[in-house]
């Protein structure tokens, strides 16, 4: 079985206006979805969420945040295992971020 990384991208600005109830409902969807993957024994690590601020270093110059040209930024990641890309994509299909206009990038992990 191979391992895959899920990279979650979304527009952070849209999330700031959410009510507590909406945030709680979104949290439940995430937990249930990760539970579904874990229940199929396909979850390696639920991973983490990322803060919306960051630093980028390029040519020894440090700038705030990588997101000047795109609104969507990296919001978190998880690690799963699957037999193929198709299967990994099938798992990613249920991700709640897709209902909120975000995206999931699926990448096979090349173990060194």
């Amino acid at each position: 079985m191979k391992e895959y990384l899920f990279l979650y991208r979304t527009n952070y600005e849209e999330m700031t206006g959410r009510s507590d109830a909406e945030a709680a409902s979104m949290m439940k969807k995430w937990m249930d979805w990760l539970g579904n993957i874990a229940g199929q024994n396909r979850l390696v690590s639920k991973g983490n969420r990322l803060h919306d601020s960051g630093k980028v270093i390029r040519d020894s110059v440090v700038t705030n945040g990588p997101y000047t040209d795109i609104k969507e930024s990296l919001g978190g990641y998880s690690q799963v295992k699957a037999d193929s890309y198709d299967e990994a994509v099938e798992l990613a299909m249920g991700c709640p971020i897709l209902q909120a206009g975000g995206s999931v990038e699926v990448r096979e992990i090349d173990t060194m």
Binding site: K28, M31, D32, L34, G35, A38, G39, Q40, N41, L43
Partner: peptide, 25 residues
């Protein structure tokens, strides 16, 4: 119960827990 099973399966998979979780679901 569902959230506890979600959490349990993340730290320790077992078929029994997976089946019980579906019932809770």
């Amino acid at each position: 119960i569902l959230q506890l099973y979600n959490h349990l399966l993340q730290v320790q998979y077992s078929p029994v827990a997976a089946l019980n979780r579906i019932y809770a679901l």
